[in-house]
């Protein structure tokens, strides 16, 4: 897996060669820097930690400043880890740019969705509510019955009810790459991505994976590894 941290800029549209309109999300992706290398010996797993964005030194916490000072960088806004098989490819302070996606057709985007607050059952799950008239009394937007009787005598788990909605981490998979600007570090992705404008995104691709990823996945699940050609 290889990935980048970015920020959502907003949506717009572009034209395909045949004149079709493609809705795209503009993402300012990278450049990211390798802040830390995590090794199996020390941390229990192999990963690189990426940093993105800028933070004023006066605004950063002291542990944060110290973390970056170790490798001689200024504090960064967002940190994200990527598990990587072959750590020897990367050094600390290495820069990773959008060009990692220049060969990939699709990317996955992870972000935090817009918070909607407490939502009722009609808006959240599309329930029909109660009738507007015929004697309905102050229960126009209610869910109605939520269960049976003494048997089972409880409400089943996962019953759709009102509650806090949004503000959760969502991964949108297989968004096609509509364009890349290597100079300006811009990635265009077809369709929408979670979050508001300016919110942090983690963009990653499964397709640029080194060949032996399949074996690592099996190892992670403690399954016997068999190499086939």
């Amino acid at each position: 897996m290889i990935g980048l941290i970015g920020k959502k800029v907003g949506m717009t549209q572009i034209f395909s060669e045949e004149g079709k309109v493609i809705p795209v999300t503009v993402i300012k992706a990278g450049p990211c820097k390798v802040v830390q290398k995590k090794t199996k010996a020390k941390d229990g797993y192999d990963a690189i930690q990426l940093g993105f964005g800028e933070v004023k030194e006066s605004r950063a916490s002291k542990p944060c400043i110290g973390h970056f000072k170790k490798i001689g960088l200024k504090p960064m806004e967002i940190l994200e880890e990527i598990r990587i098989e072959d750590l020897s490819k990367f050094k600390e302070c290495d820069e990773i740019k959008v060009d990692i996606f220049s060969n990939s057709k699709f990317v996955n985007v992870q972000g935090i969705t817009k918070g909607k607050g407490f939502m009722g059952v009609m808006k959240r799950w599309g329930f029909k509510g109660m009738p507007a008239s015929h004697g309905t009394h102050r229960k126009h937007r209610h869910p109605g019955s939520i269960g049976q009787h003494t048997d089972p005598g409880r409400v089943f788990k996962g019953k759709k009810m009102g509650g806090k909605t949004g503000n959760e981490k969502i991964t949108v998979k297989k968004l096609s790459v509509a364009g890349i600007d290597l100079e300006k570090n811009i990635l265009l992705v077809k369709g929408s991505v979670p979050g508001s404008r300016g919110s942090a995104l983690f963009i990653f691709s499964d397709l640029n994976v080194p060949v032996n990823l399949q074996t690592t996945q099996l190892q992670a699940e403690n399954k016997p590894v068999s190499v086939e050609k």
């Binding site: 920020k7 800029v9 907003g10 717009t12 572009i14 034209f15 795209v24 503009v26 300012k28 364009g179 600007d181 300006k184 811009i186 265009l188 404008r197 300016g198």
Partner: peptide, 13 residues
Amino acid sequence: MLDIRQTVEKPRM
């Protein structure tokens, strides 16, 4: 942020 979006739109206009 809006300026970045314009760098995408301008050359395509």
